[in-house]
């Protein structure tokens, strides 16, 4: 009996946000990220017979997604050679000679280590979000990640403002507990 089993009926509900976050932090384009996630689910569906049940459903989907992201970069890199390289130089004559300095890397920009840490932090947050009841996770994401205002969420989910704040309170308490164990 395999340790894990696939249930594609729950994939969108359980993994779409996690996979989307994983993708957008790597491709930096909302539409492309959605396409890659969609392709991942479809590829998963087609290769369900290959699932051995040794890894969790999420790990298996992530492994498919990683290949999709690599394919995406391979594709755009193979197109790069064909593209004409253009560079806009500063036309301001007073700043003549300064253009090179203006184009060097910003020392205060995020380093690769910062980015890696943020990716890991994002994964830890999604692990904790996955442990919340569905409604709490939904309200928390709408309020905290998407930044919707209270009225919009209340209208969309047909809940009162006080209901919303109770849900937010429970979600934040549970998340803080979970993050304390795994990250803080």
């Amino acid at each position: 009996m395999p340790k894990h089993q696939l249930d594609p009926n729950n994939w969108i509900k359980l993994y779409s946000d996690y996979l989307f976050n994983y993708t957008i932090t790597r491709v930096n384009d909302r539409v492309i990220a959605q396409d890659l996630v969609s392709e991942t689910f479809l590829a998963g569906l087609k290769s369900m017979a290959n699932f051995k049940g040794e890894a969790s459903e999420r790990t298996w989907l992530i492994s498919i997604l990683k290949r999709k992201i690599i394919d995406y970069y391979r594709k755009i890199n193979s197109n790069k050679g064909k593209a004409e390289v253009r560079m806009n130089y500063n036309s301001d004559t007073d700043a003549e000679g300064d253009w090179l300095e203006e184009r060097v890397a910003d020392p205060f920009d995020k380093t690769a280590e910062d980015k890696l840490e943020n990716l890991e932090l994002g994964d830890a947050i999604y692990d904790c979000l996955g442990k919340l009841p569905e409604k709490q996770a939904e309200v928390f994401k709408m309020k905290t990640i998407l930044g919707y205002d209270t009225e919009t969420i209340c209208n969309e989910l047909e809940i009162t403002a006080s209901n919303l704040w109770v849900i937010i309170h429970r979600a934040r308490t549970a998340l803080a507990d979970c993050m304390q164990k795994n990250w803080f």
Binding site: S16, D17, T25, Q34, I125, A176
Partner: peptide, 29 residues
């Protein structure tokens, strides 16, 4: 603890699908 949670949420810059985006994905799937 609450401030710390807000801080890590901002630092991680996590993202998620909007409802209409998820609905579209769901329909396709």
């Amino acid at each position: 603890r609450n401030n710390k949670l807000t801080e890590v949420m901002q630092k991680a810059e996590v993202d998620c699908l909007k409802n209409d985006e998820r609905d579209k994905l769901k329909k396709q799937f």
